[in-house]
Amino acid sequence: MIGYLLFAVFFGLLLLGIHRKVIARIQRRPGPPVWQEILHMFKFSFKSTWIPATASDTLFVGIVLVAIGIWSAALFIVLAGGSILIIFGIYMLHKIVEHGFGLSSGSPYGKFGGVRSVISAASEIPLFVSIAVIAFFTGSLELSEIITYQEIHGPLLFIVPLSAFAMYLVILSKMPSGPFSIVESKEIVSGYKTEHFGVWRAGLEVSNGLKTYVLLFMFLAVFIGWLPFWVLIIGMILLVVSLSFACALCPMLSPFDSVTIQIIITGIMLGYAAVLWVIA
């Protein structure tokens, strides 16, 4: 289990490296090597580190522990075929983590990032509609039962494609350099993680690797079903490449536009859920 945890960290970081490389190639730049995010983690962990004078010491360090802990828990829940409601509860906790990162530092840039994290909670609403549609069809929120349903009826990707699209957008909102990545946009330096440098940032990188792995794994398990290990790995790479295309070709939206589009998507999803309800 500890081996799988370490694998998820490194492979998640590799996926983020592939993400950066694909974006760079689309923009006709050479880009960093695909293992750049792994190197980043090691680099940050070696940097001389302290706690800024303006920071709240306990929260500043504690929030890094929480970030790694919640995504480790999410990984174990996915592997056990547990409830997707718990996993997306953890996804919501990540909002609090981002907020905590920003507010604990005492930096105005971090605070702006934390506040934007709260604003971007609009991206979670399509997620809940998506989950409701899945529960409506499969009659369960247990990942293991959703997978069993797909073995009998085929992938949910073809049964409820709009629901898959909504969850795809939710994952897109969590990818770096995406159209909805307002919490890390350049006008607020690095957003909520601006003041978390050195070892603290290395911890955040570990958490990001786990988060990427868990979210992509979840998407494939929920909408395609349980896949053999190597197929899962290839599926994750293909998924991240498609997300990279979306990130490279769409400009980063302003916070207002980002929230507006996510609310429109939520409206469409609610209409879709209503139509499914009426048809059934």
Binding site: I2, L39, L65, A67, I68, S72, A202
Partner: peptide, 27 residues
């Protein structure tokens, strides 16, 4: 693991990191 792994990661980094005035730009 959920409780111990985060502490392990941070403590490993804090043990490994360069101390003040050391060179700290590898990787």
């Amino acid at each position: 693991l959920v409780g111990s792994f985060p502490v392990f990661v941070l403590c490993t980094g804090l043990w490994w990191m360069a101390r003040e005035h050391d060179e700290d730009t590898p990787f």
